[in-house]
């Protein structure tokens, strides 16, 4: 079961995780990305390419599904403006065993960072804004798979 959602509003991570747990597998792994207050950042704004986003996220999930014995994958990503501490992304995987659940969750996040059409803009306390640049560490993380 693959579920991919893009929301403008906040989501209930606990609800999403418990829905995957209810599939009856032995291991559930999840990752939640939150808005981080680097420097004077007070908000993040996420833009995306709607027609491509669903397709890109689904492709990543399907590739993970082919590599690990998974029972379910949920990817939820938010768009729009978010304040410090708010949830941006949830990736949740479930499998019979922990290594498959943990590794696939990590794989999906690494692929999502460099392979899904989202762009982050940082808003600072003084009203300035700046588009976030690609990070070499994200490219390196993708390369390890």
């Amino acid at each position: 079961m693959i579920k991919v959602e893009v929301y403008a509003d906040d989501f209930d991570a606990g609800f999403e995780i418990s829905k995957l747990s209810a599939l009856g597998c032995g291991a559930v792994a999840s990752f939640i990305g939150l808005v981080r207050g680097d420097g004077d950042v007070e908000a993040l704004e996420l833009e995306h390419y709607p027609v491509m986003t669903q397709k890109a996220l689904r492709d990543i999930a399907e590739t993970a599904n082919g590599r690990w014995p998974l029972h379910g994958i949920t990817i939820v990503h938010r768009v729009g403006k978010m304040s410090l501490g708010e949830q941006i992304v949830l990736v949740c995987t479930c499998s019979d065993h922990r290594s498959a659940a943990l590794d696939s969750c990590s794989y999906i996040m690494d692929r999502l960072k460099t392979g899904a059409p989202f762009w982050k803009k940082q808003w600072f306390k003084d009203g300035r804004s700046e588009w976030v640049e690609e990070r070499q560490s994200d490219l390196d993380a993708k390369g390890r798979w």
Binding site: L112, K113, K120
Partner: peptide, 12 residues
């Protein structure tokens, strides 16, 4: 039919 031009993606 459609070409998209954008900076490197920075989601997640």
């Amino acid at each position: 039919e459609e070409l998209a031009i954008f900076p490197p993606v920075t989601g997640g």
